[in-house]
């Protein structure tokens, strides 16, 4: 474009603009060219060569994952025992175990505990992790490094260590009680599920914080600035901009925390072994107890199967949630 200050006014662009809709438009006018038919070059196609590349990982998956899972699924419908006669002489028993499961009060209770544990853990980890990540963003560098370091150490700590630490802190005469001047209060005994959930939150939060921190850094600063100029309050900016943009990250984190929490068997086992009574007997623990303490391998496997299905349902829900648009 030419720009001649000597001749101002919009007329300056007249030369180029006037010609634009000339011959080109005329050629288009009497009927557009027909869209070609037949196979499109840009159509998605299956590439046979990709099969060869898939074979190694497919084989590994089959041997290490699919076959064991299918086998475990089958075991759930047998009378296999860890010791005794049915350890050797076992066979398919059809719906027998299912019937037992349906009438099993402990299983129902365990299911409820699991849902409560997961819901509490996920909510706690996401909220605290996000809050920490947002605080870290505005913190001065030294504070950020020290606080971040502590949270991450908590996350890297083996489940056994974390479990022992929490056990030691929350039983009678433990650190928390002493600090609060209630030396004899046995928190773990009184609110076992709550304490166990808190311990799990404590050990997962560092992970969530790191993931959210990375996602927050990826939100363009000018979006928040633009909202700031519009005098949007901090909560409004958070609700209308930050949160929607973090949504995919939150969904992924929720899924991961769900799975990691269910797999965080060691923590609860060290702290309560499912007790007192059955108060923290979430599905992974109950499955383990049935299989290896009461020697009902098959029944344990069936409970494990229920757990797998539960995870699959969670997964499906999250996948849907991450697809739909705000």
């Amino acid at each position: 474009m030419t720009a001649r200050p000597g001749a101002p006014a919009p007329a300056g662009t007249g030369a180029g603009a006037g010609e634009a809709p000339g011959p080109a438009a005329a050629a288009q006018a009497p009927g557009r060219p027909a869209v070609p038919q037949g196979l499109r070059r840009d159509a998605e196609r299956f590439q046979w060569g990709s099969l060869a590349l898939l074979v190694p990982s497919a084989a590994l998956l089959a041997v290490l994952f699919i076959i064991p899972v299918v086998y475990a699924f089958y075991l759930g419908f047998t009378n296999l025992q860890l010791v005794g006669i049915h350890a050797v002489d076992w066979h398919f028993t059809g719906a027998e175990n299912l019937r037992r499961l349906a009438g099993d009060q402990v299983f129902r209770y365990s299911m409820e505990l699991t849902l409560a544990f997961i819901a509490g853990s996920v909510a706690g980890v996401v909220i605290i992790g996000l809050a920490l990540a947002m605080l870290m963003q505005t913190a001065l560098a030294p504070v950020r490094i020290v606080a971040g370091g502590i949270v991450i150490v908590a996350w890297m700590m083996p489940a056994i260590t974390a479990g022992m630490t929490w056990y030691a802190s929350t039983t009678a005469g433990g650190t928390f009680g002493t600090l609060l001047g209630l030396a004899n209060s046995d928190f773990l005994h009184r609110e076992p599920l709550l304490i166990v959930t808190l311990a799990n939150i404590w050990s997962q939060t560092g992970f969530a914080m790191m993931v959210f921190g990375a996602a927050l850094r990826n939100i363009p600063r000018d979006l928040l600035e633009s909202a700031q100029i519009e005098n949007a309050s901090r909560p409004q900016r958070f609700a209308r901009i930050t949160l929607p943009l973090l949504r995919p990250t939150i969904v992924t984190t929720v899924l991961l925390i769900t799975l990691i929490s269910l797999a965080n068997f060691g923590l609860i086992y060290v702290m309560t072994q499912g007790g007192p009574g059955n108060a923290t007997d979430i599905l992974p623990l109950y499955s383990y107890q049935q299989a290896f303490q009461f020697d009902n391998l098959a029944y344990g496997a069936l409970i494990g199967n229920a757990l797998v299905i539960l995870c699959a349902i969670f997964g499906a829900i999250y996948v849907r949630a991450s697809r739909s648009r705000a």
Binding site: L223, E230, A232, R247
Partner: peptide, 28 residues
């Protein structure tokens, strides 16, 4: 702070909210 200066700004980078429709961007 920016919100109390009664200015409105067109950013060089546009700074459109990617999660909102054009309507919602304008109505923000």
């Amino acid at each position: 702070p920016p919100g109390r200066r009664d200015v409105s700004m067109v950013f060089q980078s546009y700074a459109l909210y990617p999660n909102m429709t054009v309507y919602k961007n304008l109505a923000f």
